[in-house]
Amino acid sequence: MNPVVLYTILTLTAIGIIAAGVIYFVSKKFEVKEDDRIGKVEQVLPSTNCGGCGQPGCHAFATAVVAAGDLSELHCPVGGNAVMKQVAEILGIKAVERDPYIAVVRCSGSFEHRKKTNIYDGTESCKIAAALYSGDTGCAYGCLGMADCVEVCDFEAMYMDPKTGLPVVIEDKCTACNACVKECPKGILELWPKGKKNQRVYVACLNEEKGSSARKECSVACSGCAKCFEACRYDAITMRNSLAIIDPDKCKLCMECVDTCDVHNIITANVTPEKIQAANEQRLKREERARKKKEEEKLAAEAAKQQGNGTAPQA
């Protein structure tokens, strides 16, 4: 064999063996001991590193869970209860069930409802536009429509509807990781409990201005008429300035408020029209009963008064 070839092979082999030895030594010497449960927990996590749990990534979440040894504070919204159950099994601790959440879009000012008042020509980013001014429509609360939320979504669970100019959340894909909520400068997106049978009801408007000015800016703005507030039997609706807000924790999904809204701005998800209609009829009946009762009371009171009047002189 040519000596050059031989030497080459020998030298390279020698270098390889020495390097392998060095690597072996270094890996032993500087090995970092880690609780092996962390690895196991990380295995069952969705490894999206989305940060929805509040930790910087899945590994950090696993470390935090193992360190805490308690699941009441930590929850992986992407994996949901199924994953958290597995985590609990690995760690041999009690699983904590949580209601699943979903992001909802709290603006319904589509192109046709909300006329443009100027043309925005800066960088296509809601955050930059929001820092500059109140927006390219009259409404200072509404969606700016430049899709910062869609861009930030790791799960392709959002898209912009070209007809309305508003973002749409795809129910099956949304993991409630909170990224879009944090991203939106106007706070249009909000995490909402997915609800029983996936049913939800919320007010798709954030405009707190007085009804007259809000309606000038957007034809479907909440005018603060408080009809829904009056219709709610569970005190789940509150009024902030001129805006109705539904508290999802108190809401019983009775759907009675939905039809009271003049601009159909109380949005429902996965609720059949029949249910809304039935709920509405029920409400109307109840209101009728209440009205009748009131009238009867009034009559009774008047009668009593008259009687009183009649009897008074006698006394």
Binding site: I119, Y120, D121, I128, L132, Y133
Partner: peptide
Amino acid sequence: GLLTVSPS
């Protein structure tokens, strides 16, 4: 018509 708005 509508005015243009952009950052400086």
